[in-house]
Design a protein around this nucleic acid. Structure first.
Ligand code: MN
Ligand code: MN
Ligand code: ZN
Ligand code: ZN
Lengths: 136, 136
DNA sequence: GTACACATTTATAATAAATCCAAGATTGGA
DNA sequence: TCCAATCTTGGATTTATTATAAATGTGTAC
């Protein structure tokens, strides 16, 4: 049984072929793909795959903390197999989404003192190095 | 001429009635409303209002920096007349979106050293004070 | 005040993403 | 092997957003 299958099992997820391949795709393509990306690429090798399965499976992973939803642009839900705390940078020129490490120890937050925080999301927008240098 | 009309003018936006009322709605309801919220409430007093106008007007405001898009949940684009740098907290129990002040001086970011950052977004999720206390 | 060019708003249709659903296929355990 | 539970599928549906073109409103020159 594959590494990925084992991991799914350990997380109480029945390791069906679709689930294994979707998880592998997520891990092998850490570019924060959309449902559409994942579907279009996997349907080549799994012709019977349906988009609903991709939605359901990603949902399942998120509920089991094996993946995260990355919401940056409206109407562009992306997924990330890296569930550790990190930030995202979206280049408005080339559209790439980069990861960056954050240390929020120094982040002061006034106004939500007694709130229970379960998720922290940080994303920046701008122009990436590559696009900056290739300009004019 | 109203305060709001003046402000729109100063920003090179012709102060039509729809635009004035949409801006006023945004400022009087700092709860990060959606297009739907705004439309449903304003159509009561402006029966001819169309949703397209709400979309277009908000877009215009964002382009002129009089409003911001707040993207937290997928498929739930919210708008904010407060364009200063601040964070958002969404309560997963009651759905409210709170503001909080952030001081990101202390936020270390490794990995995007040479990138040009134009926008910074921070949002947390969890359970708000009110919901925490009213529980069981 | 009228005419006209231009800006704004509207109704409607087109797209596209996400969700729902019911039926069929697959699975693990008795 | 058989069955009940779980998964997957295709298609229909819903919902959000954008596009288009016609209608309406506005400011200004005459
Ligand atoms: Mn990431
Ligand atoms: Mn806000
Ligand atoms: Zn770039
Ligand atoms: Zn709450």
């Amino acid at each position: 049984m594959s590494e990925t299958a084992e991991r799914l099992k350990r997380n109480n997820i029945r390791p069906s072929y679709a689930r294994i391949r979707i998880m592998e795709y997520l891990m092998e393509h850490p570019v924060h793909p959309t449902v559409e990306d994942i579907y279009q690429n996997l349907v080549k090798e799994i012709p019977t795959l349906s988009k609903t399965t991709v939605y359901n499976t990603l949902d399942l992973f998120v509920r089991h903390n094996l993946a995260r939803v990355v919401t940056i642009e409206e109407n562009e839900t992306r997924y990330d197999a890296d569930t550790t705390n990190h930030g995202h940078f979206k280049c408005e020129t080339c559209g790439s989404v980069y990861d960056f490490t954050i240390n929020d120890d120094g982040l002061e937050t006034k106004g939500i003192g007694d709130f229970a925080v379960t998720e922290k999301h940080v994303y920046f927008k701008g122009i990436c190095k590559k696009c900056l240098y290739s300009k004019e």
